[in-house]
């Protein structure tokens, strides 16, 4: 029954878990887009992050405490995501190549690389469980009925995802760094005039975005399933792009959109058993439909950073 407390706990808990990778990648994506660089390669960066995290955890094996291993795996995933993002930054910022094409190529590259390496390590069928992020149960709070287990009995990375959007919003709107990043996307000439480098700002934002996408991949792979399957991101990188739009390029609103999408996904997985009469496919469509509605202006004004997608040329202003 949908209103049964047990159902709500199970649903909410899964919703938060599914939203976690989305939130992490979305915050990174907000920074990149705010600086003026569109990145449809987030999907590929997440995939590379997921693979790197699992491979790192696999090779470290039982050599250390699972918590230490998952930390190292998360760092490796962030470095890998950042490494792929460097290709994006180099081509789009330095070489001023079209951002969509670069991102599309990165997605294909990531799929090809991870598929090939996966088979090289684990063979045709191999899928080995590795050490993942440890489960954390916050004393007292986790005992609150319904809400407790949903919010306070989760994988460690989920708690990280609670704080990231808040910190990100503070940096973006309350610090000079944030102002510079936002100016990079809205009015790069001002950044240039202030004696700062538009190139450096955009590189930093894109690399941060890639690292967060890598971490999101680690959250996806090491948060629950603890193994890698080829193409396991399954379009989540594109949901992230939708969340950024629906969240109007604000880390907290975008994270809220991710929560909604995570809840819809978790509901969809359960809807098939519930016989609601609404085909489950419509719940999967929700993020994408909302994103189109958001850019179309149907749910309030959502205007992207003014110079989003445009390379900066000094003479062009």
């Amino acid at each position: 029954m949908p209103l049964d407390p047990a159902f709500i706990t199970d649903w909410g808990s899964a919703g938060i878990r599914l939203a976690t990778p989305l939130i992490l990648a979305t915050v990174g994506g907000v920074f990149a887009e705010r600086s003026g660089v569109f990145n449809i390669g987030i999907e590929g960066m997440m995939l590379v992050g997921a693979f790197t995290a699992v491979a790192t955890s696999y090779y470290l094996g039982a050599s250390a405490d699972p918590a230490v291993i998952s930390l190292l795996a998360a760092i490796a995933a962030m470095l890998a995501g950042g490494g792929i993002a460097f290709i994006h930054a180099f081509l789009t910022v330095t070489r001023r190549v079209d951002q969509i094409i670069t991102g599309a190529a990165i997605n294909i590259l990531a799929l090809g690389l991870t598929n090939t390496l996966f088979r090289a390590i684990w063979g045709e069928t191999g899928r080995e469980r590795v050490a993942g992020f440890p489960e954390v149960r916050v004393p007292v709070l986790a005992d609150i009925p319904v809400v407790g287990p949903i919010l306070f009995q989760q994988s460690l990375i989920v708690f990280v995802a609670y704080f990231i959007p808040i910190i990100a919003a503070f940096v973006l709107f309350r610090t000079t760094w944030g102002l510079t990043i936002r100016a990079g996307g809205d009015f790069p000439l001002a950044v240039d005039t202030a004696g700062l480098s538009v190139t450096r700002v955009r590189y930093a934002a894109v690399l941060f975005g890639g690292a967060m996408a890598g971490l999101a991949g680690a959250a996806l792979a090491l948060g629950a399933v603890r193994y890698f399957t080829p193409g396991m991101t399954a379009g989540r990188g594109f949901i992230v792009l939708g969340a950024i739009v629906v969240g109007r390029w604000h880390p907290m609103i975008a994270a809220g959109a991710c929560l909604l999408f995570g809840a819809a996904d978790a509901f969809q997985l359960r809807a098939q058993a519930l016989n609601l009469g609404i085909p489950y496919q419509f719940f999967i469509m929700l993020p994408y439909v909302l994103a189109v509605a958001a850019v179309a202006g149907a749910i309030g004004r959502a205007s992207p950073p003014q110079q989003l997608g445009r390379p900066y040329r000094r003479e062009a202003g």
């Binding site: 469509m285 994408y288 202006g297």
Partner: peptide
């Protein structure tokens, strides 16, 4: 007619289309 970039809209509708066919 509205000056909305076609990139996000066309990209997002890919997934709507895929799941529409699945339905």
């Amino acid at each position: 007619y509205r000056g909305v970039s076609e990139v996000v809209t066309t990209l997002m509708l890919n997934f709507v289309g895929i799941y529409l066919i699945s339905y």
